[in-house]
Amino acid sequence: MSGIALSRLAQERKAWRKDHPFGFVAVPTKNPDGTMNLMNWECAIPGKKGTPWEGGLFKLRMLFKDDYPSSPPKCKFEPPLFHPNVYPSGTVCLSILEEDKDWRPAITIKQILLGIQELLNEPNIQDPAQAEAYTIYCQNRVEYEKRVRAQAKKFAPS
């Protein structure tokens, strides 16, 4: 494992614990031996107030490669969400998460999670990743928002 990646992720964890947006979660997972795995984080993004996503808490896994922060983490909703920019596998399609697009090593975990929260309610229809959600979003916004509200209710924190 890269010392650069681990040191950056340790800084990220410290900064997150000191200050993070209300309702968001970002925690490194534990290895079988109980030690912390900084390369694999369990996160959760709350649906934004005043949107059909409100009330939901959407679980996301963030996986970092050894060359982080040169390369972005892979962000994957578990379980996958109904959304035009979420692949059926759950992987998020967002330009700041793509090395050859808008990724920059200075982007923080907090910025990534806030960017994904923004994307939930403002899909990028130029870059669809899920045919069904994309089609319904474009053709029947009322039905799309109904499905999103049902999903938010399903993923409401207990």
Rank of each mutant, 00 (worst) to 15 (best):
S7C: 10
T91Y: 11
N31Y: 13
N124T: 02
S70K: 07
K76M: 13
G115D: 01
T108Y: 15
F82N: 01
T135E: 11
E143R: 06
E42R: 10
A15I: 10
A15E: 12
S70P: 05
I4N: 06
P73R: 03
S158I: 12
P157L: 07
L94D: 07
K48H: 08
N85Q: 02
L9A: 07
G47T: 05
A131N: 13
L57I: 10
T35V: 03
S95A: 04
H20W: 01
P28R: 08
E143A: 12
S71W: 14
E54S: 12
G115N: 01
E143V: 10
Y144F: 04
D102G: 15
S70G: 14
P21L: 05
F64C: 08
Q11G: 08
A106P: 05
I109M: 12
I107N: 14
G34V: 05
I136G: 02
F58A: 06
P73T: 10
T135R: 12
R141E: 04
L38M: 07
K110F: 04
A15D: 15
E118N: 12
G3L: 10
Q139H: 11
A10G: 08
L6K: 12
L57G: 06
P69Q: 01
R149D: 08
E78L: 10
E132V: 08
E54A: 09
P84G: 03
N31M: 13
N37A: 15
P32T: 13
T51S: 13
P105V: 08
G50A: 11
R147E: 10
R147T: 14
Y144G: 04
I109F: 07
A5L: 09
L120V: 06
R147W: 08
K153A: 15
D67Q: 10
D102K: 07
P128Y: 02
D127L: 01
D67I: 05
N124H: 09
D19Q: 01
L94Y: 04
C43D: 07
A131Q: 14
K154R: 13
M62Q: 04
I45D: 04
G115Y: 05
F82L: 05
G23Y: 09
S89T: 12
Y144D: 08
F82S: 00
E12K: 02
V27Q: 02
G34P: 00
R141Q: 14
P52R: 09
A106K: 00
E145P: 05
R141H: 13
G23H: 06
V142P: 14
Q111R: 15
I45W: 06
E145A: 12
S158M: 14
Y137I: 06
K14P: 01
A131F: 03
R8T: 08
A15N: 08
Y87A: 03
I96T: 15
H20A: 00
E132H: 09
P69V: 04
A5P: 08
Y68F: 09
L9W: 06
G23L: 06
G90T: 04
L9H: 01
L114K: 11
N31K: 11
L114R: 09
R61L: 11
L57H: 15
G47D: 05
R104L: 03
F22P: 03
N140P: 10
G23M: 02
F24T: 04
D127Y: 12
R17M: 03
L6I: 06
L38S: 01
E145Q: 11
R149M: 09
K76W: 12
Y144R: 02
G56D: 02
K101T: 13
T29M: 12
K65F: 08
I107A: 13
F77V: 02
M39W: 08
A44E: 13
A133C: 09
Q151K: 05
A133K: 04
F155D: 08
I4T: 06
H20K: 04
P123L: 01
K110Q: 08
Q11E: 11
L6N: 13
D67M: 11
L119F: 15
